[in-house]
Design a protein around this nucleic acid. Structure first.
Lengths: 210, 210
DNA sequence: CATGAAGTGGACTCTATAGTCCTGACACGT
DNA sequence: ACGTGTCAGGACTATAGAGTCCACTTCATG
């Protein structure tokens, strides 16, 4: 599942694991804020308090580090979304999920965008492996959305003939596109509006089934 | 309107204009394909057949070149969209617009994404001026979409109480998010699906007004 | 047709950054 | 407690890439 896990099957001590984690965490933060390309290894070392040799001890180079960051950020996002969506089975729950994302993004006025989306658009055209990992993460995330929609459908809140997967794709795209527009405008409104429209559409489908 | 037009008010000869155009064009192509960060000035020089001094004669540095690229790409996209959307006033026309974008993106299996969107997500967090230019371009593009929706509303195809601007925002986000998902998946389907969902929602609003 | 400005060519410098290497400390199994 | 391999520190190298400089050519306008 993971792309560039630990290092090619070496034994890790507790201390080593901790150092590796510090490096990946610092790299993830910096790459989120500055972008992947603008983040130098020296930046990462300074932020994590590690040294060159430690970095190259744990990773083959920058590309490998980026892949580890993708895995790490992916894990975090999926975990967050699993918590937020895993048991949602009502439109109200879905709207609460929306509110949480919007509020969270409002804290930085939309800057930096979606942790996964930013990585994806910067990395997809350079590193095929990272791209595939990101594609997998998006599809996992979308699967969580599909799970919610499935529960809605099972509960009769959505007609049985609508395509859960297509709705999940549309919702995911609205979310990502909204993030990007908000990032560019430095204003959360577009993101909120676009998710609202996607949710409105999904909710409107239920009216037919009454 | 333009961000980093010609150079700080110098007189341009025909030859100079041509050279400047070659440089910007080559830079735009390279930055679209390789990304802004991965495109070096030497790349641009090699591709355009210009020399260092010519580049620095016309631009203050890489940042200025990037801004010129944003303007250039923006002009192209807006012009294309004005042609495609300027006189559309039916749902059918809107679907033909969708088909053209999807087919065009299918040629490269989604790779590289939207010319404007890719620039935006890479540049927004680094260069405030470029970010504002991109925000302006997005809003211009969205204005073209809003124009179509307005004509639909004026013609009675959309109820008078729906918010044109919100629909245009949602459609734009669906488009951009779709581009990004397709770029990551190397597959146009998500983009097509997400635009379809946005259009379906907009069309569904008209049913209420019958 | 002269003069100065716009335009061109490419060598050169300087610095940031990826990546290497060597030395030594620590930790764990035996 | 001892020895092997993981872990850490940081100096060092190599190079790619941004930006400078200067000599030269072409152009526009009086």
């Amino acid at each position: 599942m993971t792309t560039a896990d630990s290092h090619n099957g070496r034994r890790l001590t507790a201390r080593g694991t901790k150092t590796r984690g510090r490096i990946v965490g610092a790299a993830a933060d910096l790459m989120y804020i500055q972008g992947v390309g603008a983040t130098t290894l020296d930046d990462v070392l300074a932020a994590s308090g590690a040294s060159k040799s430690q970095l190259y001890h744990h990773f083959d180079g920058k590309e490998a580090l980026v892949r580890a960051v993708v895995d790490h950020v992916g894990q975090r996002v999926i975990e967050r979304e699993r918590d937020a969506l895993g048991h949602v089975s009502t439109f109200r729950g879905l709207r609460r999920w929306r509110d949480a994302l919007v509020q969270n993004n409002a804290l930085r006025h939309g800057a930096y965008g979606c942790a996964l989306g930013s990585l994806a658009s910067e990395v997809s055209d350079h590193d095929a492996l990272a791209r595939q990992a990101l594609a997998g993460l998006f599809s996992e995330w979308q699967g969580l959305l599909a799970g919610v929609l499935q529960r809605l459908q099972d509960g009769g809140a959505l007609p049985p003939d609508v395509s859960i997967d297509q709705l999940a794709t549309g919702l995911m795209a609205a979310l990502q596109g909204g993030y990007m527009l908000s990032q560019t405008a430095r204003n959360v409104t577009p993101m909120a509006t676009s998710i609202d429209m996607a949710l409105a559409h999904i909710e409107s489908l239920s009216e037919r089934s009454s």
